[in-house]
Amino acid sequence: MVENQRWLDYLAHAVLICGVIIVAFPVYVAVIASTHGPTAFTSGTIPLLPGTNAVESYTGVFQGGIAAQMSVPIGVMLTNSMIMALAIAVGKIVISILSAFAIVYFRFPFRVLAFWMIFITLMLPVEVRIVPTFQVIANLNMLNSYYGLTVPLMASATATFLFRQVFLTIPDEMMEAARIDGAGPMKFFRDILLPMSQTNIAALFVILFIYGWNQYLWPILVTTDDSYQTIVAGIKRMSDVVDSEPLWNSIMAVTVLAMLPPVAVVIFMQRLFVKGLVDSEK
């Protein structure tokens, strides 16, 4: 540092400790709540120290059927979320890397038009075209299916731009050498481009997995059948009870389970995650 000012260091530590507490507090409360029995929430305030009901809370949500609004076993929802997140991440990467390859390594009529069409998807988030998109999905019979959940979300301008950027930095000599050695475009793509963009693919995968897992509006629109419900979209229905108090310990157990996979990804693959985040915003 520029000069040694102890009080500023102490202040910085104090600020950071406060920050970490604020950031962690809601999740702490959720974890604690999930270790209590349902009776802990009928009076007084939320408990702040662990209870003894953890095993029952979690096995309860896995078995399902605790109450009418929790009829779907959580295993089904977790599986659906996993399928959705993986399919969207893999699908987006495959589709985008192929388009970027076409745009960078070929010159053909309508190339610029194709580029702009991909660019426009950035400007049309699901939220602003909810009703007509729903009608399209309904007309194509894609409601209540994994196709409906994943395929419409696979177009990606950011991923395409990212791979375009990566390909543009790969030296031209690579391709010239490959061509001299008689490699066709697909062989060049498989044996040179793919291995050279491995880290970018991994970083992007981390970001897209989180994106897919955290989808909320889309699963609500596309699924009415419980067997296609995802966990993030399902939580709300559990807390929506009219007559009685919600079963907070079970809801918080589900909330913790819904957070666990993406949070684990961020913590254990922090380096890739940061790279993916910074790359995909350029």
């Binding site: 950031v23 993030v232 979209a233 939580i235 819904a258 957070m259 949070v263 922090q270 985040l277």
Partner: peptide
């Protein structure tokens, strides 16, 4: 300790 809430869904 500060970055992980990125992974928490807005709904959650």
């Amino acid at each position: 300790l500060l970055v992980w809430p990125y992974a928490v869904a807005p709904a959650v």
